[in-house]
Design a binder for these strands. Structure first.
Lengths: 241, 241
DNA sequence: CTCCCTAAAATTGTATGCAAAAATTATGAA
DNA sequence: TTCATAATTTTTGCATACAATTTTAGGGAG
C-alpha cells in the first residue's frame, strides 16, 4: 500500500491499483448528485447503470450502492427490474418540500438566536451586504449563491446537527429547480426586504421574529413560484429567494 | 418465471429460483431495522456482513445496498474498510432529533387542521380513548403503542408527503430508545393532559394551538427524559410520551 | 505480566459473471 | 399500413471471486 503516492485517478483507476480512502460509492453519489442538479441527468430520465459506469470509470457495484444513497435522499426513484430514474417532483412535491424546509428554517432561526455570537452575526451581515451589492448590480447568479449561503449559515448557527443534515438533504431535492432557472420571478425586491428583516431579527436575537420571517419568506417564495408557473406555463422552478 | 407459485422463502431462496417482486435490499433493510430497534444489534455494535448474510440467508450484495439505505437514515454509521456500526446517539443527538421532530409535528398539526375531516377527527378520538383506557389500567406497552399511532396519524393528516417521510425517518432514529425502555418517567399524567389538549385543538381545527401543544409536548418529553437521565444515571431513553 | 511484532485469519470494497426481467427489433398476418 | 407476436438484445438483481485492509492470535523480549 503506497501511502504517499499520488492517486492517478480518484474516481476511476485501472484494475486494483492504490485506492483513495474515500469509498467509491460516495464518490459516485457525489458525481451523480452533480449530474442531476446540473441537468446532465434530466428529471424523469432513466439512469442506465453501465452507461454511467463507463462515464465515471467504475464498476456497477459502487454505482448501485450510490443509487441507494440517492434514493434515500429522494433524488432518484428506484424501480425494481427497471433501474433508477431521476425523480421529477411535481408542483405538489415541491410545495411540500418548501413547507418542510420552512418549518426547519424557522426552528433553526429560533435556535440560532439562543446561541449566536457577535462575530457570527457579523459574518451573516457580510454575506448579506455582499448579496445586496450583487442585487444593485443586477447580478442574479452571484446574488443567488450568496443567498443560498446565508440560509445554510443560519441553519448551521442552530447548532443542531440533525436539523442541519435534514435541511441539507431536503434542500438537495429542490436545488435542481433553483440551479436550472436563475431567473427572477418578479420577487427580488420583496426577497431583499425579507432578508433585511431576517438580519434585523438575528441581530436582535429575536428568535420568534426570525422564525416567523423565515417561514413567511419560504411561503412567499413558493407562492411566487406557483404564480409564475400559472402565468407563464413555466415549470415550477423559477424562483427568486 | 412461475407466476402463481408460492414463494418458498421471501427473504432467502436457494440459488436463482423464483423471486418476489420486492428487491432483496429492501427486505434486508427492513430486517436490519427491526434488529436494531429491538436491540438484537446493539448501539455501537459492529455489523459483520457475512454473519448477517448467513443469518438472513442472502448474499452480501443486497446487504451492502441495504446498509447504504440505513446509513442514509442515520441508523448505522459506515466506516470505510471497517464496515458498518449501529449508530449510538448520545444525549445531544437525541435532543437534536426531538427538537426537529417537534418542529415537524408542529407543522403537521397546522396543516392537519386545514384539511382534516370529521371522520378523521373521530378516528383520532378513538385512538385517544383507547390509549386512555390503557392508561387507567396501567398497561404501559399498549398505551405506548396507541400513543405512537396517534402521533403518526396526526402527521399523516398533514397530507404533506415530504413531511410524513421525513418524520418517519427521524422517528426511526429514536424508536430504539422508546422501544427499549417502556417505563414511565413520572410524566404519564402530564402526557395524558397534553394529549387531551391536542385532541381539543384538533377538534377545534385550531392549527396554531395544536402546533404549540405538539411542540411543547415533544419538548416536555425530552426534558423529562433528560431529568430521568440526570437523576437516575440511566441512559437517555426512558421516555413517557 | 505487559508490550511489540509477525503471521494468519477475517472482513471489506470492488469487479465480474450469470440468470431473470425488461426493452427493442424483426417478422408475419390482416 | 398497422398490429400482434416472437426473437433478440439490453439491462437489472444478485451471487461469487479476488485484492486490499483490518483484526486476531501467538510468540518473543523486557
Amino acid at each position: 500500500m503506497t501511502e504517499g503516492g499520488p492517486d492517478p485517478s480518484p474516481a476511476g483507476y485501472p484494475g486494483h491499483g492504490p485506492r483513495s480512502r474515500r469509498p467509491l460509492h460516495e464518490e459516485a453519489a457525489d458525481r451523480l448528485r452533480d449530474m442531476i442538479v446540473e441537468g446532465e441527468l434530466a428529471p424523469g430520465e432513466r439512469i442506465r447503470e453501465q452507461a454511467v459506469c463507463d462515464q465515471l470509470g467504475l464498476s456497477r457495484t459502487p454505482l448501485r450502492e450510490a443509487m441507494k444513497v440517492l434514493a434515500a435522499e429522494g433524488l432518484v426513484i428506484l424501480q425494481p427490474n427497471r433501474g433508477a430514474m431521476v425523480s421529477d417532483p411535481g408542483p405538489v412535491d415541491i410545495a411540500d418540500t418548501f413547507k418542510v424546509i420552512g418549518a426547519l428554517e424557522g426552528l433553526a432561526g429560533e435556535l440560532a438566536c439562543k446561541r449566536v455570537k457577535e462575530n457570527e452575526i457579523a459574518e451573516i451581515r457580510v454575506l448579506h451586504y455582499q448579496m445586496a451589492l450583487h442585487h444593485t448590480r443586477g447580478e442574479l447568479r452571484e446574488y443567488f449563491r450568496l443567498n443560498q449561503r446565508i440560509h445554510e449559515t443560519l441553519v448551521e448557527l442552530s447548532g443542531n446537527n440533525v436539523l442541519i443534515e435534514t435541511h441539507r438533504q431536503l434542500g438537495g431535492r429542490i436545488r435542481r429547480q433553483r440551479f436550472a432557472a436563475n431567473r427572477s420571478g418578479g420577487r427580488w425586491e420583496q426577497a431583499m426586504q425579507e432578508h433585511e428583516q431576517m438580519l434585523e431579527a438575528l441581530a436582535a436575537r429575536d428568535g420568534k421574529r426570525l422564525a416567523e420571517v423565515l417561514r413567511l419568506h419560504l411561503d412567499n417564495k413558493l407562492t411566487a413560484a406557483e404564480r409564475v408557473d400559472r402565468d407563464a406555463g413555466m415549470p415550477l422552478g423559477v424562483l427568486a429567494d
